[in-house]
Amino acid sequence: MKTDKVKIKGENLTVAYGDNVVLRRVNFEVEKGDIFIIMGGSGCGKSSLLKVLTGLKEPAAGKVLIDGVDFYAADTAEQKKIMRNGGILYQSGALFSSMTLAENIALPLQQYTDYSAAMIKDLVALKLALVGLRGYEDFYPAEISGGMKKRAGLARAMALDPDILYFDEPSAGLDPVSAKLLDDLILEINQSLGTTIVVITHELSSIFAIGKNAIYLDSESKTVSAYGNPHELLKNPPNRNVLSFLTGGRE
C-alpha cells in the first residue's frame, strides 16, 4: 500500500480507561476512497477505536495519522481542521432536538463557511434530498422515525463535504429494508463523492454488502486478529473467532 494513498493510519494504538486496557497495539491503514469496516463482537473496543479516530479520546499509546498528520501531536488549529474534514453519523443520529432538520444541517455550514443564506438553503435541500428526506426541512427530530433520524444525521455529517465519513453502528435499530437502504446510500456516497468511509458494525449483511476492507477486533486478545476484504476473510479465516463471527456463530 503506497503511503500517498493512505487516508487514515493507526499505528500501535493502545486505548485504555484508567488501568483498564481495551485495545492493544492496533495497526491498520485505510486507503482514500475505501469503505473500511471495523468489526467485532460486543465489548471488543470498536466504539473506543472510533472515539480515538475522531479525536474524542486520546490513545494511551500510538498514533493516529490522517493524511500523514499525527492528529494527537498536532496543534489545536490543525486538529480542528482535521476534525472538520470528518463527518460522523452516530448510532442515534444525535440530531439537536431543539432545531429543525434544516437548522441541524445548516449549523456547520453557518459556522465554518461564508456561504450566503441562499446557498446554505440550497445545500440543505440537496443534502436532505441525497438522503431521501426531500421536503422535511421544517420537521423537528422528535417528529420523524428512527431511520429518518439516521438519514438526517448523515445529511448533517455530509454538510461540509467531508473527506472521511465515520458511521457508528449505522444499521442498529433499523428494520432490514431501512438498513439495506442505508447501506445502498453509503455505497452511492462513496462512489459519487469518493468519500473515505469508516463503518463500525457487527451486522454481517452490512459488512458483506459494503465493506471493501475490514479489521476484526478480538475481545480476547484486545487487538486486530484479521485484516482484509470481508469476503476473502470468510474464505480464508485466520482464526476460529473470525470464522465464528463471519458465519454468525454457525461454524
Binding site: L126, A129, L130, G132, R134, M148, L185, E188, Q191, S192
Partner: peptide, 17 residues
C-alpha cells in the same frame, strides 16, 4: 459522471418518503 450520479441520487423518487 460522478456529478450525474449524485444528482440522480438526490432526485431518486423510489426512496423519497
Amino acid at each position: 459522471e460522478d456529478l450525474q450520479r449524485l444528482l440522480a441520487l438526490a432526485s431518486a423518487v423510489d426512496r423519497k418518503p
